[in-house]
Every structure is written in structure tokens, then in C-alpha cells.
């Protein structure tokens, strides 16, 4: 019996104390670390937010609900502190969906023994979840009154590029460190 077989399996939709606490911790981390971002040189508004990597990480490790909670509540708090309020509520939903998709994707993947392969799969899975979740910002066409071309070139494309860089680099790093700790606690 390997370590993965001993790990208790829970429903991906379960809302336990673990889901609530880790969702809250993740949202607080995302809100605080999310205040640090930097502009990609040569662009007008493409901002890399390193903390975005936390969203698929929490989705993968703590489930669909925790992942959605981290993205949605974390982004809403960042907006609140930066003065945007509820203006970009659909971006908060998109952030939440990234976490939820990450939870769904990794819940149905079989356990991977090789660490190298697991890191690559984590990076690819997180990137796919980001690409799918951020599609929700297509609602900007109705919310902000923009056209499809603006959505693609100024909203979705740059967001996918900047968040994609963050998740590909940082999500596997976080996951690699959490793997031995999660086995130690039997979770």
C-alpha cells in the first residue's frame, strides 16, 4: 500500500472544516500577497500577480470549493482594498473558477509517483485551469460594454499570459513543498 492509497478520499464538493479553514487561509494569503504585482515591460497593462499561483494550488490540494473560495474571496478583497469595490465582480468569479477547475482536473487524475512528472502535470493542469476559468471574463462584453476583439486582445490574452507565467513557475514549487508535509499529516 502506498501513501496515496492510505489517504482518505473525500467528495470534491464536500464543505468540511478543512475546506473552510484552508479556503480562508488561502484567500487571506492571496489577498495579502496579491497586493504585490509588477508590470511586464513593453506592455501597457499586463501585470504579473505572483500570488495568482495560489489559486490552482489550493484547488488541487484542498478541493473544488476551497479553490473557488480562494480565487473569488481573495480577488474580491484585493479589489476592495485597491478601491475597485464590486466593479470587476466577474473577474473575481473568473479567479474562483480557476481554482474550481484546478480542483476538478486534479481530482480525476490518477496519483503520479514520479516527482518530475507530477510537477510537469501540476504546471500543465494549473495552466489549463487558468485558461478555462479566465474565459468567464467574456462577460465583460455585457458588463463593461466592450467588443469581442477588445476582450481577446486587452482582457483575456494579457491576463492568460501574465497569470500563466505565475502558475507555471510557482504552483509546482508550492506543490512540491506541500507534498511531503501533506503525507506527514496523513491528509
Amino acid at each position: 500500500m502506498n501513501a496515496d492509497a492510505a489517504t482518505p478520499r473525500h467528495s470534491v464538493w464536500e464543505i468540511s472544516s478543512r475546506t473552510v479553514v484552508f479556503g480562508a487561509v488561502g484567500a487571506a494569503l492571496y489577498a495579502v500577497l496579491g497586493l504585490f504585482s509588477f508590470l511586464i515591460p513593453g506592455t501597457q497593462s499586463v501585470v504579473v500577480r505572483p500570488a495568482f499561483a495560489l489559486v490552482p494550488f489550493f484547488g488541487k490540494r484542498f478541493g473544488v470549493i476551497a479553490g473557488f473560495f480562494v480565487g473569488f474571496v481573495g480577488n474580491a478583497i484585493i479589489d476592495l482594498l485597491q478601491g475597485s469595490g464590486l466593479t470587476y465582480w466577474n473577474w473575481s468569479v473568473a479567479n474562483g473558477l480557476v481554482g474550481a477547475f484546478a480542483g476538478l482536473i486534479f481530482a480525476y487524475l490518477p496519483p503520479i509517483r514520479s516527482e518530475g512528472v507530477r510537477l510537469v502535470v501540476t504546471a500543465v493542469g494549473a495552466l489549463v485551469a487558468t485558461a478555462l476559468g479566465l474565459l468567464f471574463v467574456i462577460t465583460d462584453i455585457w458588463v463593461q460594454g466592450i467588443d469581442f476583439s477588445t476582450f481577446l486582445t486587452l482582457n483575456y490574452g494579457p491576463a492568460l499570459l501574465s497569470d500563466g507565467i505565475a502558475v507555471v513557475i510557482l504552483t509546482p514549487a508550492l506543490d512540491a513543498l506541500w507534498e511531503p508535509l501533506s503525507k506527514r499529516t496523513g491528509r
Partner: peptide
């Protein structure tokens, strides 16, 4: 969970 988030900040 929302309550806890604000307490953790």
C-alpha cells in the same frame, strides 16, 4: 469562511 478570512488577514 469569509469571517475567518478577514481574521487571518
Amino acid at each position: 469562511g469569509v469571517d475567518l478570512t478577514f481574521r487571518f488577514l
